[in-house]
Simulated assay, not measured.
Amino acid sequence: MYQRNNQNNMRGVVISTGYKSGTMSHSGYNPYQQRTPTVVPASSFNPRADAEVLRKAMKGFGTDEKAIINVLSKRSNAQRLQIAVEFKTLYGKDLIKDLKSELSGNFENLVVAMMTPLPEFYAKELHDAMSGLGTDEDVLIEVLCTMSNNEIRVIRQAYHSMYHKPLESDLKGDTAGTFKRLMVSLCNACRDESTIVNPQSAQADAQALLRAGELRFGTDESTFNMVLCQRNYGQLQLIFQEYARITGHDIEQAIKNEFSGDAEDGFLAVIRSIKNQAAFFAKQLNKSMKGLGTNDRQLIRLVVTRCEVDMVEVKREYQAKFGESLADAIKGDTSGHYKKCLLALIGEPAS
């Protein structure tokens, strides 16, 4: 079980789920962006009472899905894990197994995700993205290009404990070229996370990026990798501003001109996450629902992981960028208890 202290712009998680304790915290991750969750710890929390409600909801003929949603969507991930411990203590049964036996489809997948310790959840998503034929690079980008050093270290620890292999070795085996070097650099989790900025250094880095890309034949990928993976967020904001000043166009345009495929997507994700992380995740949510069909795994991952971080800002960016509310998009693409639970997690009524 791990415990979380959740304040508007701060999240701390202490983990002890079969591997060495670590801390997964969003505090100080990007001090330039507001972060307001839609799911916060219940103030009058009673895990025993919650366990009893869940047991009653699953006992006998039929399942009271409304009661399950009402409890789990209004508790933090840490509190849900405490409920699971209490459930086992009271009834000698595994809460997740009981939930899986009572639920089905995407609603079951959503609830299981909600009940999984966050580092283990991320580790499994990364592992599954690299398992079998092909690689889901979008998952690697979404996680590694947006995380703080500490978050990556805790996920690495969980990954090694669960799969008995270093995350870095699997990344190396499943990626190639510039994209592989980007993933390995980010997995190394050694970004400067101070708030110290230096305008002169920003000018020098902007000039170096220009020389490495648009002013030469071919591209010196290593310079882009070094700057984007090492500099702190405030410094990178200055570098982006300086690059736009000396070239007359955004750094994103340079990335599109110089790179393609997964490397382009990865570098753009780093830049966009630093500029406006909520807007980045709003775009990912839209991507999970637009077109024919829904990428339910991506939708579940985004809602479950962002609802305790910055979902208020993500919803605002979604409305501004796509002209409809995130709630309406979810209502149009999902149904039943799955829809109701997603809406509850983003702080919206189901009606």
Score class of each variant (00 low, 15 high):
N149V: 00
A123V: 10
K275Q: 15
K256I: 12
Q237N: 15
M162A: 14
T178G: 07
G323P: 11
I141M: 06
E102R: 13
D310V: 01
M183N: 07
E102W: 01
R153D: 10
S44K: 09
V139E: 07
Y318I: 02
Y2Q: 10
G248P: 13
A204G: 07
E264N: 01
F45E: 03
C341T: 04
V314E: 11
V143I: 15
S194R: 00
M24V: 09
M289I: 12
V154C: 12
R245S: 09
G266D: 02
S131C: 08
C145A: 15
V184N: 01
H164T: 12
E102D: 14
T247G: 07
E193W: 00
K20S: 14
Q79F: 11
N286H: 15
P31Y: 01
H164G: 00
H337K: 07
I330Y: 00
Q203M: 06
S161C: 05
A279Q: 15
K100G: 07
T17L: 11
H127S: 13
L268Q: 03
G18I: 03
P37G: 00
S148E: 07
A202D: 01
G62S: 03
L171I: 07
I251Q: 02
F280I: 06
I196F: 08
I239H: 04
A176E: 12
Q203C: 01
V143Q: 08
S44D: 10
I274R: 11
M24I: 11
K287S: 05
D138V: 06
A176M: 06
A206R: 00
K315L: 01
D310Q: 04
E142T: 08
G293W: 00
H249M: 03
D296K: 03
D174Y: 09
N30G: 01
A327W: 05
N70F: 01
F322C: 05
R216E: 10
N198E: 09
K283N: 08
N257W: 14
F61L: 14
K20G: 04
N109T: 08
V111H: 03
L285G: 06
S201C: 10
I15L: 14
T294I: 06
L72G: 07
E52D: 10
I69W: 09
E221F: 10
T195Q: 13
A189T: 12
V71N: 09
G22Q: 12
A212E: 12
E242G: 02
K66V: 13
F322K: 11
T175C: 00
R11W: 07
Q237G: 11
V143S: 01
K283V: 02
N150V: 03
A206V: 03
